[in-house]
Write a protein that binds this DNA or RNA. Structure first.
Lengths: 279, 279
DNA sequence: AGGGTCGATACCCTGAAGGTATGGATCGTC
DNA sequence: GACGATCCATACCTTCAGGGTATCGACCCT
């Protein structure tokens, strides 16, 4: 059995998603008969029935469901591979993905301290995806909220959790709150939201949201929003992440220097007390 | 830019490994000119120079080195995807990879307790690879010694470390030893070896090896070999592992029942004291 | 029964992939 | 420094896999 071609994977994904040969063919920009043949040949070569089809119904078999997931992942990985190779043209240049609004002093420190060539920082909400699709080489993300599958991480720092509340909220003048107290509010959403900080702030100001952010974000909120330490939440662990099997020396060099920079920052913070948990 | 085909990846890998178009073409079973053209077209479509070539020398560019790693991984993943789909034909049937000689009561318990359909157990030394290439659905491996990249794990049990020594070894009659004491022996090899237990035993009997194994293996060694608890090593953590993104319900069901079985085992052991660390 | 829908089959055709011959650059050697 | 050897690139030809059109056959719904 010779090797499957990516075209065949793309064809199968289209049919598996549409569950309709005609629609899938249209989506692929080809006619229906060649698509039928391609799928048949694919099944024959794999030795597995992927789709159960009558003239009225197309359905995935168990094997087909598995292969659909695998195929999607493979096609994504292929695109990622190309992007990574394209960006590796400048071997020293790294791209770091950061959530908009989270570019605190930490990010500046990382960029400043890196010994490797030049850097770019892309701001995007879906940082794990940016790593997986090859748009970025490293990313700053939260352990526990972000999806870490396929990524390696190095914890850089911990951020104390702060509740964001409207100025006139009953809990706004407290020195410390608990999750249970916050949960009283109908607008409480404990998930580290995937939207930008600016949008979070807007929604809090309007009384539409009560949520928790890391201490790094506190210095960036306007006076209309109160930030109150949360006593019974574990600190958010901020980590530098990069794809497994990253073969670029610049990545490992950057990780090393980032660890050192984070350690220095932690020392400074202890000395001055500026970023202490108690605020 | 339309999508790269796996054939192009395979061609590139061949050239990148041989660093010689003629040799690579021979390996691929095609003539040299089509290979040259395929690589050129690949580079043109990607917009990146992958190989630096003169009539005397072929070398990888930085981008090429990155793309080589990515391509290898993609081709492996493709083969794995096909195998996984093929085996998913029997959705209930699971294949578990176990190291030869480590099929202690734990494995039997796992297989017995599983609620899902039928199971197979394959015995192989390279269990992580068996998971990655799709030969197995789950595997039993050691955290700390096996490579866990791309795998999810659930720790099932901890095994106390025992030193294996020839019967007539100076330390053989001790009730407990330390790593420092073992290290005196020129044949001491602390790495959890990747060979089978039978080979380990053979080498220990011949006085060619002193090593450490988990308590599960102790009941399987002959009387010519002494097993002495090691006091200053952390217990080996045995974990069930499976590939990230496994989309088969049978896998998650098996993991759940395995966790339960391991918990029951731990309780039994505590009651009877049979597998206690003190032996 | 008849029309509509949809996947499979039959048959044809185009173009991409592969083969052969050869060019052109570079290195080693006498 | 001319010559041969080596090796990648180019030119040109050939083949067949992949795609198109027409149509069949199965199935559902009035």
């Amino acid at each position: 059995m010779d090797r499957l071609e990516t075209r065949e994977l793309a064809y199968f994904v289209a049919v598996a998603e549409e569950l309709h040969f005609g629609k899938a063919a249209e989506r692929l920009g080809i006619a229906q008969p060649p698509l039928s043949r391609a799928i048949s040949r694919l099944e024959r070569r794999m030795g597995v029935r992927l789709l159960e089809r009558t003239s009225r119904r197309v359905a995935l078999t168990d094997a087909g469901a598995v292969f659909l997931g695998e195929s999607r992942q493979l096609l994504d990985s292929l695109d990622a591979a190309v992007r990574r190779a394209q960006r590796a043209r400048q071997p020293g240049r790294l791209v770091m993905a950061v959530r908009p609004g989270s570019a605190s002093g930490l990010v500046a420190d990382l960029v400043r301290s890196a010994e490797v060539g030049s850097h770019d920082v892309v701001f995007t909400h879906d940082r794990p995806a940016a790593l997986r699709d090859g748009r970025a080489d490293v990313a700053l993300l939260c352990i526990g909220t972000d999806d870490l599958t396929g990524l390696r991480t190095a914890v850089l720092t911990e951020e104390a959790p702060y509740a964001l509340l409207p100025r006139d909220h009953p809990l706004a003048r407290r020195t410390v709150v608990t999750v249970a107290e916050l949960a009283q509010d109908a607008h409480f959403d404990p998930e580290c939201p995937t939207v930008g900080l600016d949008e979070i702030v807007d929604r809090v100001v309007l009384g539409r949201l009560v949520t928790v952010v890391g201490s790094g974000a506190v210095e960036r909120i306007p006076s209309e929003v109160a930030a109150v330490p949360v006593s019974d939440l574990l600190p958010t662990r901020l980590a530098l992440a990069w794809p497994e099997g990253a073969s670029r020396p610049a990545v490992t060099a950057f990780v090393r220097s980032a660890r050192a920079a984070a350690a220095r920052r932690a020392l400074d913070a202890k000395d001055t007390g500026a970023v202490a948990v108690q605020g």
